[in-house]
């Protein structure tokens, strides 16, 4: 399974919750599969989906799911200690780990080599870290939502992309629509 297949599978689960999605193909794929006012698409800024998701989770009670990539988390590793030490039980971070920088042409990341993001998250102090296969992602996400505990999911999948259009929606429209969805 590749990232877009995981997104297709989890889209029905995501639609009930606030979602922050990582720059590039993850946002574009999610936008194509199931555009929702509850989706915040990052059109810029590598690596900050988990930080935005944590900030959002800490100030309001709705459940927040940040969809990140292995390359993005590697670029903002400082996020994991901050998450570990500021527990928000309405926050779930899914790292779709395809071992590559998918949006830039599938160059390998260290997460596909010796480095384990799940082990890093645990070492940073994150208490509920689950590494699962791509096929298990949907069940794992459901379990994490039901647990009402902050959870980091590392979903291991194959690298590879499908052709998707860029998002042409304006950023202010994305964030205005999202902020209204947070309030209602």
């Amino acid at each position: 399974m590749i990232r877009s297949e995981i997104l297709y599978e989890i889209a029905p689960i995501l639609s009930d919750h606030l979602v922050i999605s990582n720059i590039g193909l993850p946002s574009q794929e999610l936008h194509l599969i199931d555009d929702q006012p509850t989706n915040f698409y990052m059109l810029g800024t590598m690596g900050l989906a988990s930080s935005i998701g944590l900030g959002l989770s800490l100030v309001q009670e709705k459940k927040v799911i940040a969809i990140d990539g292995d390359g993005a988390v590697l670029s903002n590793l400082g996020t994991l200690p901050t998450i570990a030490n500021n527990v928000a039980n309405n926050f779930i971070l899914i790292i779709i780990d395809n071992g590559s920088y998918g949006s830039t042409g599938d160059q390998p990341t260290y997460a596909g080599k010796k480095t384990s993001l799940a082990a890093i998250a645990k070492a940073c102090g994150c208490e509920n870290v689950i590494e699962c296969s791509a096929e298990q992602t949907s069940e794992t996400l459901k379990g994490a939502l039901a647990s009402n505990r902050m959870t980091i999911i590392v979903a291991k999948c194959e690298s590879g992309n499908v052709k998707v259009p860029v998002i042409t929606m304006d950023t202010v429209a994305i964030r205005d629509r999202f902020m209204n969805a947070v309030k209602t």
């Binding site: 800024t45 900050l48 930080s51 900030g55 100030v59 901050t82």
Partner: peptide, 26 residues
């Protein structure tokens, strides 16, 4: 005030953006 020390400033800017999306001033 909720004080959340960050490890790098761009990370902090992300945290503040999240709080803003949640309707809080950061």
């Amino acid at each position: 005030i909720y004080h959340i020390p960050c490890n790098k400033e761009d990370e902090g800017i992300g945290l503040c953006a999240g709080a803003f999306l949640g309707g809080k001033r950061s």
